[in-house]
Every structure is written in structure tokens, then in C-alpha cells.
Nucleic acid binder design. Structure first.
Lengths: 335, 335
DNA sequence: CTGAAAGCGCTAACAA
DNA sequence: TTGTTAGCGCTTTCAG
């Protein structure tokens, strides 16, 4: 990489003249600016980002820590973050915590050494189970702002972007009840997560409002073969006429299972799931989905963080929690 | 962030003493080292990464440019890269080209200003169509090594990690022929990509080895509703008894379509697709998949890049192309 | 055993 | 209009 020094030498001017010329300072004469710029172009000069960062005490980089990049929702949020960040001239450094508290802490530490100006993150499963939040507080007290999304720690004072999980599931369940469904099952493979619990509670609430109904819940573990377990569950509960899936795979699997039992979807059984558009194509009929607008979540998180990073002096107590509302997309697996 | 300067002041020693003490230099006395380390711990001192980078002219950061993070295969590669990089003490900066040549160029430029020590990337669709490679060559000539994976530019001299697309599809097709299948269709939504072409050629070769067979190919465009298009295709070609899918969605959709037509899978029709384990659960029976070992691809790419970055002086002509072999996982949609 | 000083590439206040 | 200098945080050579 060519440096100011080299340009200066070749032009027989001082380094600062070159610097000023390239920054269009009006201290520098027309002619000089032209000469400098020509040479800079010739050599494809680009200011060294690291030196700039050191000087300005600002990296223009956002640290993103997500628990699992293979989770389609999280990948989509990352996409939203990256796009928004790029539009504002920020880069992102991504770490994957792999649902591990230890890795999450390490990543936070690692990037908090000057590599980034702030964080966007989603708590790891282990962090949520153990409810550890000291590492976040420490990072914030170091002056690095954090924005949490989806799985958030309510006890940490920071900006947050969340989904209306409780309401969305409540409404989806109510919808199914309005279709005339009587035996509604809830299937989830994210029991341990805050969002999983919220979704289950939304379902429970809708069910328990009808005294004659009782909840039927299947929680899948990591070890389960989801297909076999869901099929066994549905065989055991033959009278189920609706399924609410808390995750993206279970809904599709439930539809395929129902079809394999000779049921007609949605005539005999309705299915709704938290899923993306692309996954909905994996069943016939297509899964009716609760869309979480993941990209928007990511974009919102990035916006909030960038705003905060540019206003570090501002009051530290006006933290906001943005709720991105889900929407129900009726794709054919409901009446 | 606390700096060496602050520690030095508080300890009444010089900055360089503190620095040496923290690095366990044997120039410094036991006692001093202890004092320094204690205070550093107390203040949770971490060396400023940016300053280190400037000094050492090395960022320990890898730039990753991928066309689409919502593509499960690419996300998985990214996962593999991140893990391998983290193990070697490298961070990753991720840019998403969105299949656009312009964004790819911009990202490359942006990170080539000192932000990263090298690149791992997968060409955007537009780059492959237009076959533009100057930006890669320029980056390499600036001294930044590149490792390409999956969709690579053969005319660029650099390390590469690819999949045996041609062979894998050829073998998979042969397998289906050995099952006794006679009407084998090839479905793809990645016609424009190098890997899509390779896969189709593998299929074509296997088919054309049998004079009595002729290829039947469906290429989906972005605008198509994959479900409707595949169903229409299968209705039109009623005699199809096997499907090879070049992408992960088409295989699952084909199975579901076949089931909806009342066919038994795999009795009446076999289906094979390039897909991941998790997607294979989205059909009943589960999709028999050609697994690409995406994480391994990522890990290999990271290893190759790290090696190259640590040996920049070494000969620049011994570039390697690593082929990561696919494997066929028979999940139930084939005989 | 400890400290002073130079330098990585850049910007900006101040001098000329 | 241009140049000199200091400094961002750190390492390292060389002096003390």
C-alpha cells in the first residue's frame, strides 16, 4: 500500500501538504491539489484505515455476535445489519457464539479492545439459561454501546429490538380457534430461549381463555429426530386439528406428517409456524407463516447503534426498546 | 480503555517498562513485573488492537465476501471460516455482495485499505456472468492474498477450494440409472453459476452415455414460484421416475410434489439433491442428499489463507486448488 | 534493570 | 500557500 510519505517524497512536498490536498483543504493551491491527486490516483492511494482509526479513536466497525449463523432467522438479521451498516459506511466484524456463554464472553472481550465501536448481539442459549449479564455491563461501562435483538437481557440497560412473540402467538392461536379448531397443539424446539417461552405463553393464554380446552405441548430436544418425534406425537394425539410451531422446521414437518397420515391440510388440520418465506415452500400446501421481518430487525438494530455511537455524550438513560411487529402470511395451511 | 501511558503514570515508571513487563521481558525485574501486572489486571488492561495493527502492519483480520448469506450452503461455509479463523486468533470482517459485481468490487476496495490481511471469497453471480476478474488481480498485486471457494475464477492465480460438482452429479445420476430409472430429470435454480453448469454437465454426461436416454432439464428463474413451476413440470413429464436437484430447495419440493400426485417415493420416483442435513427433514421421506461439507470447505479456505498470509515471502506461483469431495447420504428418497 | 526515542500512517494546530 | 510538529497506543532499539 502506497502511503502519504511516498507521495510526498515523489512530489517534493511535505506529508501534510499531501494530506490536506487530498482532503480538499482550501489551504492548498489549486495547482498543488491537482498534482497531488493525479499521483494519488495513479498509485491508487487509499488512506490506511488502521492509521485513521488510531488517530480518530473510532473504527467505523460494528461487532456482531450471534449464536448461530445456520439459523435462518439470525442469518437474515445479519443480512439486515450488514446492509444498513454498509449504507452508513460501517463494516461489521462477526463472531459466532455457538450458543455458548464462554465463546460469547471471549468474543466480546476480543472485540472490545479497540476493534469495534459498538455491538449488536443476540444472547446465546447458555447465557439465557444461566442468566449471566456481567460481561455486557462491563462492556457498556467501557464506553462501548450495545444493541440487543430478539433474545435480550432485560436487566441490561441498553437499546433493544424485539419481536412481539407473545402477541403474535396469541393472535395466531386465536385465529385457529376462530376457524373452529378445538385441539390445538404447540410444537417447539426452542423451549430454553426467552422467545420460545414467550411464544408458548401466548399460546397458553389463548387456549386457557376457553375453559373447555387444554394445552397440548411438544418440546423437542436437540437429540430428537424432529421428523420421527413429531410424527409419533401426532399419532399419539390423533384428534389434533391445529398446530402452532414455534420454530421454522416444525411447521413444515407437521404438514408433511399430516399429509403422510392421509389428512388433508387445511381441511382436517391447520398449521401455522414462525418461518421465512423460503421455508414455506418446503411443504404442500405452503406453510402459513408468522413472519418476523428479520431484515428489518437487523436494520433497526444497526440504526439504533449507529445513532448511539454518534451521540455517545448524550444521556445514557433513554434506552429504547423497539418492537418489530410480526405479520401473518396465509399461505395455504390454514383455512 | 486504559492505556500503557495511564498505567505508567500511576506506577511512576516509563511506558516502555510497562510494555516490557506485560510482555514478560527478561529485561524487567520480578518485582516490577508483578506490580505492573497487578495494576493492569485491576484496570482490565487490554492492548489496543488498532495500535498493534498499525505497528505490526498486520490486522489479524480476514475479509470474507460472499454473495448471499441466506444461502444455507454459504452460511455454513462462513461458519467454518469463522471457527477456523477464531482458532488461529483471526477475526473476520464480512461483506455481502448480494450477487452484485459492483458491491463485490466496492467491498474488496473498502477492505483492501488496511482493514484486512487477506480475503476469502465466493464470486457473485454477476461477476461470473460478466467474467470480470481485474479487481481480484489488482487486490492480489497489492499484496493481499485471496482464497476463492465454490464459485471461483479459474483465470485468477490464487488458492481455491472447490467441490467435485461434476463428478458428484455424474455419480449420483449413475446411481439412479443403476436403480433402473429411465426418465431422469435435472432441476436447477442456479443455471447461471459455474457450479450449476458443472452439475448439469455431470448429469448430461451420465445420461448421454446411454444412447436410449435423453436429458430432461428444468431451469428455474428467480421470478418463478418454485413449487408451481416444478409441479407443472412434473405433470407435463408424467413418466419421470427420478429427479436430480442442483439446489437444496428443488429436491424437497419435488418430493412433496410427487407425494401430492399420489406417487410413492422412492418406489415410483427417486429424488436426489444438493442439500444440507437440516433441509432433508423437510420432506417425507427425507431427501437423499449430496452433502458438500460446507464447514470443511470454509475451514480449508481459512487454513490456506492463514498459511499464505504467514508466508507472504514464499513463492507466489505454487497456488493450490483443494477439492473437497461430496458424499451421498441416502436418506430415503432413493432406492 | 529502566528509560528515552523512533516510528507505524495519518490529521491538525501552529509556524513560517 | 506550505511545512513543522505533536500525538493517537504500541513495540523495540539503543542508551543509561
Amino acid at each position: 500500500m502506497v502511503t502519504l510519505k511516498q507521495l510526498a517524497k515523489e512530489l517534493n512536498v511535505s506529508i501534510s501538504t499531501v494530506s490536506k490536498a487530498l482532503n480538499n483543504s482550501d489551504e492548498i493551491g489549486e495547482e498543488t491539489i491537482k498534482r497531488v491527486k493525479e499521483l494519488a490516483n495513479l498509485y491508487n492511494y487509499k488512506p490506511n484505515k488502521v492509521a485513521l482509526s488510531l488517530k480518530q479513536n473510532r473504527t467505523n466497525t460494528i461487532g456482531v455476535i450471534i449464536p448461530d449463523i445456520l439459523n435462518h432467522f439470525l442469518a437474515k438479521v445479519l443480512f439486515g445489519i450488514e446492509r444498513e451498516a454498509a449504507q452508513h459506511g460501517y463494516n461489521i466484524m462477526t463472531c459466532i457464539s455457538n450458543e455458548s456463554l464462554k465463546k460469547e464472553k471471549e468474543s466480546l472481550q476480543l472485540l472490545a479492545n479497540g476493534s469495534v465501536d459498538g455491538f449488536i448481539l443476540c444472547l446465546s442459549e447458555e447465557t439465557q439459561i444461566k442468566n449471566e449479564i456481567d460481561h455486557f455491563k462491563q462492556t457498556i461501562s467501557q464506553g462501548l454501546p450495545i444493541v440487543m435483538f430478539d433474545r435480550v437481557a432485560h436487566d441490561v440497560m441498553c437499546d433493544k429490538v424485539i419481536v412481539d412473540d407473545f402477541d403474535a402467538t396469541y393472535r395466531a392461536t386465536k385465529n385457529l380457534l376462530n376457524e373452529g379448531r378445538k385441539q390445538l397443539a404447540f410444537i417447539s424446539n426452542i423451549y430454553d430461549l426467552s422467545v420460545g417461552k414467550l411464544r408458548e405463553r401466548g399460546y397458553q393464554k389463548a387456549i386457557l381463555e376457553n375453559p373447555e380446552l387444554k394445552p397440548v405441548v411438544l418440546n423437542l430436544t436437540k437429540e430428537d429426530n424432529p421428523q420421527e418425534t413429531i410424527m409419533a406425537f401426532m399419532k399419539h394425539h390423533k384428534n389434533i386439528d391445529a398446530v402452532i410451531a414455534a420454530d421454522s422446521a416444525s411447521g413444515v414437518i407437521a404438514i408433511n406428517a399430516a399429509v403422510s397420515f392421509g389428512l388433508k391440510v387445511p381441511r382436517d388440520i391447520s398449521v401455522v409456524g414462525f418461518a421465512s418465506q423460503s421455508v414455506s415452500y418446503h411443504s404442500l400446501p405452503r406453510l402459513t407463516t408468522i413472519r418476523q421481518h428479520a431484515k428489518e430487525i437487523g436494520a433497526n438494530a444497526a440504526q439504533m447503534l449507529i445513532k448511539r455511537m454518534q451521540n455517545l455524550n448524550a444521556g445514557h438513560y433513554d434506552f429504547k426498546t423497539k418492537i418489530v411487529k410480526t405479520s401473518l402470511v396465509e399461505n395455504g395451511s390454514t383455512l
